[in-house]
């Protein structure tokens, strides 16, 4: 059974078609990279999968664990096991990281019929997961992303992923804005979260990130469709030949 099955997905924003018949199948335990030039629909795909407002699906279907993902609200998708690491994580002044994660983790536990965590267990869990991305636990009492550097924001995304233990994590341009040290820390964090019951989708422009997070499959998203799929070597070809090469391949 596929974890995620996207069939003939068409989506538009403000009446402008962006996704034009996208097909993709992802199984548990796999890491997929989706590459493509600017405007090809990479971030739209992430938005549509996570239920962001303003995007309209005009055709096609998305099945997650054999049920209709598109029928769920954004919070229900998260509780069902989908996680998005944002390309541009927003700053939320006045909401502490600890309170934010406590609300999120307990909502997910309630959804799954589990008991909510008490304060002590929760703090232990947060400290353990923060260590995964080498974050000092003092950040937990700070407001979500407020005054964080680009690297800290991305680490916080991976920290949240570790806390929420999704079955499908979508990392949207997680490498953007990272220096080489932060890139290493973030990638290490992601690699530690690779698991047989979890799939990871890495959306990126550049092959660089894939040296750190090595994918099982690479797909090329171009003009709203997956035009080419392969293994990690495909990323190297793209790096060498550029996306213009696809024009030739297409015809």
């Amino acid at each position: 059974m596929a974890l995620l099955k996207i069939s003939n997905l068409h989506a538009e924003i403000d009446g402008k078609p962006i996704l034009k018949g996208l097909d993709l199948m992802i199984n548990k335990g796999e890491v997929h990279a989706i590459m493509g030039p600017n405007g090809s629909g990479k971030s739209t795909l992430a938005a549509v999968l996570t239920g962001r407002e303003g995007y309209t699906v005009t055709d096609g279907s998305v099945e997650f664990n054999d049920s209709d993902l598109l029928a769920l609200s954004a919070d229900e998708r998260a509780k069902a096991g989908i996680f998005l690491a944002f390309q541009y994580p927003v700053e939320v002044p006045g909401v502490s990281n600890a309170n934010f994660m406590k609300a999120a983790v307990n909502e997910a536990r309630k959804y799954r019929g589990q008991e909510t965590l008490d304060a002590f267990d929760f703090i232990q869990l947060m400290k353990e997961k923060a260590a995964l991305v080498e974050m000092d636990s003092s950040f937990l009492s700070r407001s979500v992303n407020e005054g964080f550097s680009g690297g800290e924001k991305k680490k916080n995304e991976i920290f949240q992923m570790a806390m929420l233990e999704p079955s499908l994590a979508i990392l949207d341009e997680t490498d953007s804005g990272l220096d080489i040290d932060a890139l290493r820390i973030v990638s290490n964090g992601v690699n530690k979260l690779r698991a047989s019951d979890r799939a990871i989708v890495v959306i990126t422009h550049y092959q660089r990130l894939l040296d750190y997070i090595v994918p099982d499959f690479v797909h090329v998203l171009y003009k709203g469709k997956i035009v080419l799929s392969g293994t990690k070597e495909l990323a190297l070809i793209l790096e060498e030949k550029g996306y213009e090469w696809l024009e030739g391949e297409q015809s």
Binding site: T50, D75, F83, L164
Partner: peptide, 12 residues
């Protein structure tokens, strides 16, 4: 802000 919180499983 709302979407960020909802995307982590928090109801609207």
């Amino acid at each position: 802000h709302l979407f960020y919180l909802c995307s982590r499983g928090i109801t609207e």
